[in-house]
Nucleic acid binder design. Structure first.
Lengths: 215, 215
DNA sequence: ACGGTTTTTTACAAGATCGGGACGGTTTTT
DNA sequence: AAAAACCGTCCCGATCTTGTAAAAAACCGT
């Protein structure tokens, strides 16, 4: 998850950065609006946390520019406290608005809400969207088929533990499915080809398991 | 659009009601948490604006109850002003949090944002006017029909995720619609003809999805 | 090192799914 | 009233997915 923080106060960036990195986010930083946009165009940003008052290009302009190009989430920060400003912020397309000074935990909560972290699962270079039924590898949709996705889903729900072919047939294909156990092998193989060999481990005579740490 | 307002101060309800009705919303009101839930169960509510401090059942509880049952949006109102409270509010599942006293216009903006109204969405060479019910391609109105627009709207509200035909029938045609699933295909085809083939992607055996980046 | 067993790989045919064309019925516009 | 637009359904050919079988490779205890 890449988060861009744009603020002209180095101290502010330092604080926010520290909190977000503790939560496992990857942080990119900018000191003014121009730099913010340059970074935005050069990297895949999931969320931009932008201060309103910045040199060169202000936060509102950055927000509008980002929103014109993409669906990247934007959170506006501001030292101002007028209701009027909040209106302008929201109308410029910002997804969220937080007033300075703020409790950093609130920023985290709001950021996570914007990023819909609850439906996304990260596993090494993989990202699984449980709602969207998609699997990404290095941000690229691997185009998993129906069975492949449900296989992956069941592995994730039982990650780390060894699952027998029978259990997989029962849960992915349905308990009333009648077919060869070896069919599972083929689908494991197809899935492996898409997500990388290392992620699903074979346990001879027992079944397969999804490994937490791949490498 | 049905909005439920729950607050124990009649004056508060009166103000909010007035503003929202001016915007064309249909308002239902409750004086305490118990009444709020009763109304919620009896009517299709799009958004619940709930005061934290209420007799019998408080706002947090109402929020949790609503979220347990549905995906109805909840906006919490509060006279308190602690950051701590905002955290509790968001963690209880509330979608938005507004402190009293507030500028009614902000409440409107936030409500509309939650309801995904009044928004212009850009998607490659497309522009979708959620409010005006129009879709433009290269600034040209593509003259989408009623069903086509609502199909598009639902895709946008769930962009990037794979949506089954059944889900589309349920949400675009209505959960009580009885008809062929393949009808969806035909409308997808007609929509594609107007917006370009690339935007809506087919996922064999799963459904369709609206892609963020059309390359 | 060997032979039996289990897993991986390859190949292919059956089956399911989808896109597009066409059509008739209904509603809206002219 | 006629014409146009819109909607839902059906069908067919093209395409993708899936299950199975069979060959190749890997594994394991002796």
């Amino acid at each position: 998850m890449n988060i861009l923080i744009a603020d002209d106060e180095p101290f502010m960036i330092k604080i926010v950065k520290a909190y977000f990195e503790k939560e496992g986010f990857n942080i990119l930083q900018a000191q003014d609006g121009e730099e913010a946009l340059r970074i935005f165009y050069a990297h895949p940003i999931d969320l931009a946390i932008v201060d309103w008052m910045m040199p060169k290009v202000n936060g509102i302009q950055v927000c509008k520019e980002i929103k014109k190009q993409s669906t990247t989430k934007v959170l506006l920060l501001t030292a101002k406290g007028e209701d009027e400003d909040e209106l302008i912020a929201l109308q410029s397309g910002a997804d969220e608005y937080v007033r300075k000074p703020f409790d950093p935990r609130i920023l985290i909560v709001r950021a996570k809400k914007l990023l819909q972290m609850d439906r996304l699962i990260y596993l090494g270079d993989l990202k699984i969207d449980m709602d969207g039924q998609k699997i990404y590898r290095n941000e690229q949709d691997i185009q998993a088929t129906h069975t492949e996705f449900h296989l992956m889903k069941y592995f994730i729900e039982n990650r780390g533990i060894i699952i027998s072919r029978k259990a997989l047939l029962d849960h992915v294909w349905g308990f009333d499915y009648y077919g060869e156990e070896r069919t599972v092998d083929t689908h494991i193989r197809r899935l492996r080809a898409k997500i990388g060999d290392h992620t699903i481990k074979t346990h001879r005579g027992m079944g397969y398991s999804l490994e937490e740490n791949n490498e």
